[in-house]
């Protein structure tokens, strides 16, 4: 067999492995809604989340390369680790309530779903409140977005994260409205899962931000 033939064969093998990954089981065409068996919307959300990781990676890189260029007393020193730690626990708790909400609708408990979603949205709002407290502290100490590089990078990075939290809250409110109007049931709850994926991703970003801003 020629070298090219071998290469083709090897390529074919890798290709079939990839194919196996793409559709772990060959579904029957007449029953399959989609080729991979995965829902369009869920696939979309995951690819979108992958894209968002680069967005936050770029913002974090910006923060990290300018880190230390501003003397601590002009910025970093005015951050309160206590507020940030409480905020972290709040956001982690909201992730828990979100995943429990999904679990409840999976076993058909709609009332519990709505309650947990409301709790999640409230925790999210609480987080934003904590962030507002922090911003206020910085601004009264004369650190705002145009004061120095710390202000610029900090407000941009946490601001975009906060905006994501706010969008997540809106999303959850829409889920609550939809659930109240009967649009979500035990066998039709993909919307909750999608909102949850986004919410957990925002939580995940905060886990990393907390470390690089407050801890390191």
């Amino acid at each position: 067999m020629s070298a090219v033939g071998k290469l083709e064969k090897a390529g074919d093998r890798v290709g079939s492995h990839m194919e196996q990954v793409v559709s772990e089981a060959q579904v029957q065409p007449e029953h399959a809604e989609t080729t991979t068996g995965l829902d369009h919307r869920k696939l979309l959300i995951w690819v979108f989340i992958a894209s968002e990781t680069i967005f936050f990676a770029s913002l974090m890189a910006t923060y990290l390369v300018f880190r230390g260029k501003t003397p601590p007393q002009d910025g970093l020193a005015h951050l309160d680790l206590n507020v940030a730690s409480i905020n972290t626990f709040i956001l982690l708790a909201s992730s828990l309530t979100m995943v429990l909400a999904l679990q409840s609708i999976e076993s058909g408990k709609k009332g519990r779903l709505i309650g947990l979603l409301i709790l999640t949205a409230l925790l999210g709002a609480l987080f934003l409140g904590g962030q507002a407290l922090e911003y206020n502290e910085l601004i009264t100490n004369g650190v705002s977005i145009d004061t120095n590089l710390f202000g610029a990078t900090f407000f941009t990075l946490t601001g975009f994260h906060g905006a994501h939290v706010a969008i997540g809250i809106l999303w959850i409110i829409m889920l609550i409205i939809r659930a109240l109007r009967g649009g979500i049931s035990q066998h039709n709850h993909l919307a909750v899962e999608l909102g949850g994926l986004y919410w957990h991703f925002v939580d995940l970003v905060w886990v990393v931000l907390f470390t690089i801003i407050y801890l390191i």
Binding site: V21, E24, L38, K42, L43, I49, A50, T53
Partner: peptide
């Protein structure tokens, strides 16, 4: 599905980090 992990892993491990 592992497909999701591949996308997310590509975002974080291959490009972001």
């Amino acid at each position: 599905s592992r497909l999701y992990s591949y996308f997310f892993g590509a975002g974080v491990l291959a490009f972001g980090l």
